[in-house]
Amino acid sequence: MTEITHQQAEIILRETLAKGREMGLKPLSVVVLDAGGHPKAFLREDGASPGRFEIARGKAYGAVMLGMGGRAQMARAEAQAYFMAAVNGAYGGKVIPVPGGLLVKDGDTVIGAVGVTGDTSDNDAEAGIAGIEAAGLTPEP
């Protein structure tokens, strides 16, 4: 079974933050989860608010548990609010269905998820996409 490695997680963290600096974003926080939704790695930049871990994890958790990136989750929440409310209840309120939650794939296999927070959700997603691609993996925003 393919899984996200510690080395890949480190690359994702480093390159996501580098992309955020290149874009001039506010301080970011980034979490990498394995395919079971468990944290593999996390970084919070200096100046990022302390609650950002839970937001980053919520974005990534929704992606890996639902098998869809944050953009698709947000569209689903807008179209089927009751469904997403029920899902969030089933997962103990841990799902944050907005951009910045990204599935991580190796080929067609989901091996984890990344959650990025700190700037606008779309900017968070853009930075995360760069990090995932730098690790040689495929993002699904």
Results as ranks from 00 to 15, higher is better:
His6Tyr: 11
Ala9Asn: 03
Glu10Met: 14
Ile12Pro: 03
Leu13Tyr: 04
Leu13Asp: 10
Thr16Asn: 02
Leu17His: 14
Lys19Tyr: 01
Gly20Arg: 02
Gly20Met: 09
Gly20Val: 05
Met23Asp: 15
Leu25Val: 06
Leu25Asp: 00
Lys26Gln: 13
Pro27Asn: 10
Ala35Lys: 15
Gly36Lys: 08
Gly37Pro: 02
Ala41Met: 09
Ala41Val: 05
Leu43Trp: 04
Arg44Val: 06
Arg44Phe: 09
Ser49Arg: 14
Ser49Leu: 14
Gly51Trp: 09
Arg52Cys: 07
Phe53Leu: 15
Glu54Pro: 00
Ile55Asp: 02
Gly58Ser: 11
Gly58Leu: 07
Lys59Gly: 09
Ala60His: 06
Ala63Lys: 05
Ala63His: 01
Met65Lys: 15
Leu66Arg: 10
Gly69Ser: 10
Gly69Leu: 09
Gly70Cys: 01
Gly70Arg: 05
Gly70Tyr: 01
Ala72Gly: 06
Met74Cys: 07
Glu78Gln: 13
Gln80Ile: 00
Phe83Asn: 04
Phe83Thr: 15
Phe83Leu: 15
Phe83Glu: 12
Met84Ser: 04
Ala86Glu: 13
Asn88Gly: 04
Asn88Pro: 08
Tyr91Ala: 00
Tyr91Arg: 02
Gly93Ser: 11
Lys94Gly: 02
Val95Asn: 02
Val95Trp: 01
Val95Asp: 01
Pro97Tyr: 03
Val98Tyr: 08
Val98Asp: 00
Pro99Glu: 03
Pro99Ile: 02
Pro99Asn: 08
Lys105Tyr: 09
Gly107Lys: 12
Gly107Pro: 09
Gly107Ile: 10
Asp108Gln: 14
Thr109Asn: 08
Ile111Arg: 10
Ile111Asn: 07
Ala113Met: 10
Val114His: 02
Gly115Trp: 00
Gly115Pro: 03
Gly118Asn: 09
Gly118Thr: 05
Gly118Arg: 06
Thr120Pro: 01
Asp122Met: 05
Asn123Gly: 07
Ala127Arg: 06
Ala127Gly: 12
Ile129Asp: 01
Ile129Leu: 08
Ala130Asn: 10
Ala130Tyr: 07
Gly131Leu: 05
Gly131Ser: 09
Glu133Leu: 12
Ala134Gly: 11
Ala134Tyr: 11
Gly136Glu: 10
Pro139Cys: 12
Pro141Arg: 12
